[in-house]
Design a binder for these strands. Sequence first.
DNA 1: GACGTTAGCTGAACCGGATAAGCTCAGCCA
DNA 2: TGGCTGAGCTTATCCGGTTCAGCTAACGTC
Lengths: 339, 339
Amino acid sequence: MKRPTIADVARRAGVSKGAVSYALNGQPGVSEVTRQRILAIATEIGFSPSSAARALSAATAEAVGLALCRPARTLGIEPFFMALISGVEAELSARSYALTLQVVADHDAEIAVYRRWWGERRVDGVLVCDLRTDDARIPALEQLRLPAVVIGGPGGTGDLASLWSDDAAALTEAVEYLVALGHRRIARVGGLPDLRHTEIRTDAFEAVCRRLDLAEAVTVFSDYTGEEGGRATRRLLSTTPRPTAVIYDNDVMAIAGLSVAQEMGLTVPADLSIVAWDDSPLCRLVHPPLTALGRDISAYGAHAARHLLGVIAGEPATRARDETPQLTPRGSTAPPRQR
Amino acid sequence: MKRPTIADVARRAGVSKGAVSYALNGQPGVSEVTRQRILAIATEIGFSPSSAARALSAATAEAVGLALCRPARTLGIEPFFMALISGVEAELSARSYALTLQVVADHDAEIAVYRRWWGERRVDGVLVCDLRTDDARIPALEQLRLPAVVIGGPGGTGDLASLWSDDAAALTEAVEYLVALGHRRIARVGGLPDLRHTEIRTDAFEAVCRRLDLAEAVTVFSDYTGEEGGRATRRLLSTTPRPTAVIYDNDVMAIAGLSVAQEMGLTVPADLSIVAWDDSPLCRLVHPPLTALGRDISAYGAHAARHLLGVIAGEPATRARDETPQLTPRGSTAPPRQR
DNA sequence: GACGTTAGCTGAACCGGATAAGCTCAGCCA
DNA sequence: TGGCTGAGCTTATCCGGTTCAGCTAACGTC
């Protein structure tokens, strides 16, 4: 089966290539009668314009890039990325943009990918995940002038467009909720310490603990895997006095923490309350179901994609705020047992 | 920052565009001295050839497509796809192929995407997931002559290349293992019934139950979500006599099943043994950790990608077999309690 | 009836590579 | 010395679109 080109359509319609181009792109320059005839023929022979040819002359790739910089090991487990991607995709495919994905080992490799994509004109813009403090990708992208939307912040995104959610407010709400239940010793299992949102959450945690006059705000850092989450939990639960509540920076670690607590003979929520970030179906799978700070991650991805398409179209690079994560109380939180 | 083109390199090297092209692609036609000079200049000004221009003249996109046809709801939870994608990616990026991803609603939409990709010359080939019995995508791809590798089978893949793993053997092994522990009433929570691999597993399940003279081989079909997996489990555990072991078609349903069993006051594994497919870190997160049929899904993806690149290069479309899933016994299986 | 005006189209240039064909010149041989 | 060869380059063409300049015929205007 031969792929039809614009010349095939032109020949069958008895017009020039240019006329076909005008007709298909809704440009003036052809009569309505001719346009309809050309459209009918194009549909009939199943013509879709070569993305390469279009990219070459229009200098636009009709594609958006996403580089994921996490080891395959942790990529799979967290539902976060897949949900994000499906949201991004929904927005992109509605405007027939393609999504180009690349898994990279570290930030240097990621910057190299951006540089290559830019040189190859393979993408019109990129989405940047997992913002770090003092992130080398930001100046690199600014220098390339490659349209980008940073998913993260606020702060540390340079002059690039960004999309952030108010993690500080969400964490504060979670702590206040636990305090309202009667908790005074609250600990936290954080994510990778050099990620910007870990820093934001840690600062917020310390601030609210100070404000509410709680015991020292202990944060143990981890790497989002179940193993590390379990280990961190074991360490926290071995201190005296033991915390009566733990907030986890993702769902996978929270589930591992729940397992560890039960293994150590503690009853959740009577002996230990657990709050997870990244509410996902996983949180409802376990027993008791986990109280979680969640938001619609698909919508977050869609929002980011929409924002990026705007920047590509030439809109100013603004900092947009997405919805604040909402606390959904479930069975894993309760007043602490009186002792 | 202006993107350098081949003309820029040519100008700085004092040669023609053609000479640069020969030099960069390792073709004869330039002296070694000139080649080195051109390469040095290309590196210096950070030149990478426009993928669009190359695609246009070479008629190759240097990209592979993957359409995911599951609702966003279930896509996120299962680690399977993300692991598969990271394996595919590792193989592709090593040969500087890009991966183009698209999430679609159903098979008709997926076929439309293939048709568009083909017309746009956007991809050189595609990976096909979630093979169904009597799958409309197979004839569509054959008709387009779009290189493809079907992940699934055996059987039902037409003349397309495919990659399959011996699910029948794996399921048989799991049943034999449970029988060796002393189980006689084994049930199964299957995936979507019109998926080819569900059919294969169901057939294998019925065959081994007949051979070992077990009670009727009951399979309850589900949709891979935790909700449905839990519901199916509740139904199975309410029958009399109750099964003493359940095999689940994915990890998420198995975890939900574990939760339901514990909620109903059953002890796992004393009252109920549980076996999960798709061994993933999730299986080790819960308590007790789940006995699982697992394989290296990243490697599976890499294998599929390698196979597809071969087909694109013109190798015959063969049916390759990947490693058979291995049973990893953990805490969720034990001899049934004597009653 | 001569003269704009404009709608509706054509022809050609262009995007940035790959590549076939052609040109130049050194080296070699008769 | 002239002809032949082949290495090493240049030139021109092509891929399949977009877009601009230009052409033609119909129409309105005074």
